[in-house]
Design a protein around this nucleic acid. Sequence first.
DNA 1: ACGGATATTACAAAGCCTTGCATAACGGAC
DNA 2: GTCCGTTATGCAAGGCTTTGTAATATCCGT
Lengths: 335, 335
Amino acid sequence: MRSTIRDVARASGVHISTVSRTFSAPHMVNPETRSRVLATAASLGYRPNRAARALITGRTGNVGLIVADIANPFFPPLIKAAESQARDRDYSIFVAETDEDPTVEENLVRALAKQVDGVLLCSPRMSNDLIEKLSKEVPLVLINRSMPSLPCVLMDVSLGARQAVDHLIELGHSRVAILGGPRGSWTSREIRKASVAACRQAGFEPIVLSPNQPTVDGGIAIAERVVQESASAVVAYNDLMAIGVIEGLDSLGVRVPEDVSVIGFDDSTLARISRPRLTTVSNPTLAAGRTAVDMLLQLSDDRRATGQVMLQTELIVRASTNPATGSHGTPEEGR
Amino acid sequence: MRSTIRDVARASGVHISTVSRTFSAPHMVNPETRSRVLATAASLGYRPNRAARALITGRTGNVGLIVADIANPFFPPLIKAAESQARDRDYSIFVAETDEDPTVEENLVRALAKQVDGVLLCSPRMSNDLIEKLSKEVPLVLINRSMPSLPCVLMDVSLGARQAVDHLIELGHSRVAILGGPRGSWTSREIRKASVAACRQAGFEPIVLSPNQPTVDGGIAIAERVVQESASAVVAYNDLMAIGVIEGLDSLGVRVPEDVSVIGFDDSTLARISRPRLTTVSNPTLAAGRTAVDMLLQLSDDRRATGQVMLQTELIVRASTNPATGSHGTPEEGR
DNA sequence: ACGGATATTACAAAGCCTTGCATAACGGAC
DNA sequence: GTCCGTTATGCAAGGCTTTGTAATATCCGT
């Protein structure tokens, strides 16, 4: 039914190797022959069988992309960017998700290993050792996770966190809660470290609440603690949590931004449509997706680890942050 | 480096075909031999090479999933469901997106055709003829699109639209705007037809505004027309548009739900966190994703088209709909 | 003890393509 | 006119697995 290289060869009166070369090494075949072959190939609707090609070249033309949760609005733009970049390079992308479960992560890498030329590991929660081990089985590029031995695409959330905290300090806040993300998240740790450092530098100790589920529900759940600690400002691991906190505070009678200021991370669609509009740290997810694909493709050629790429973040000030009011904002309050 | 069936055969002292059968037809091999082979296979870290398997069986173990826009919150849950269902069946999913461009759609199907056992076409914008033609090249299952000759998974948006309109009528609205989605969308047409019918049945003619870009911006853009037509209620093609309309109305000084009621479609995360909470028609996206995968897998075995599946929708009443006020709501008003 | 059914394993072909090497054709240099 | 270097094409092996068929062993009834 589907035509093979053999059919094309017969129909155009050349040997199959010539047909093969017409596609994989065009410069080695006479222009005249080439166009004849191309013509008959087109008329027969011939397309090289990737499985057969993969079998012999050892390259599949596919890359895997593993994310924690497709429904988390942080990921779709990244997936989108990666997919389109890959397609431009004539690669396809397998997308899989882990539901934030490190065990699933490991299994997925192994399952994918055989049918891809490499795997993009996005915000992995696995241990360094395990990642190291898996990187022996299949080329790996990390996104949002730093390991010296592997190529990584990082977003400078430390910078973002510092900007966020500085913004709050400028507004007069000094009772700041830092809401961490899931256990094992590099991003979460970076945000925490940078935020804490920024707070201390300003002369006060932040309230660190971690780990949390990086979802709206996770945010709702932690709202009570935020009130208990009488924080006047919150830096949340991501927009979902930020929105959850606003939600939770609201149902406790605390208003944002009047009573408490909230900052998220990611600048997802949600941040732009939530009420109040969310002040948030914008992440270069599109660039990250593209860069990661390119690094992976290069790695799968070279097999020598390339370096790290650090992409810039940016604080977007919207309506969820206000100057500190008298009733909160001083370290002594509410103790 | 990576071990093959040959290594396992040698190490366990059997012929390669026995190893092969241990994996693909376990009942044909002596339990004792089987466990021995399994053990050595495990110790060598052997995993069957899918490319080689594909080459001979003609099945890749992959399915394609083509959606309009990954970043549209309608799709991620569907992708998620499809991916997990596929993985349960030991299949992997290629995800690709068209950016709402029918031409890209066609190219993607063709590009995917050779490396998948079938393609899930989600809300395609192509013409029936083209879909028909492509279905000759690769097994196709349609989601949100009805064609008699192909297996389809449909969501009963007609029912949802009717419920939405009835809800508005109960609230006393009779100046209802129907905001269509993109050109070529089956869903959009169904919603429009059912809504219009429901309105007429109630004795008034709705205001149909179509087509629109199915995004927040699309909703913002159409808000002015809604005001011009002095509609007291809006049924939008999806949640994004609904939120955009609310946005747009807000900046025109029209409040939702006090002045105008708005209903969306999809019950996406957005609907649950937007202010006001969005009244919306919930779509069975998860079930659709799962069902579609199963139908496709069956189709790729059978090659005979299976029928259509219609999944139920449900109106979720939240806070974006109010009883009609005196100043709007009667057909004569505002003319 | 023998024919025949059953169960288990080995053999070998086939699936489609890439690629190193051999061959052929051709032009130019000497 | 011979030899060499180019260029274009053919040849055949090889990649890893599945699967129809053949071979062997086992066991049953008689």
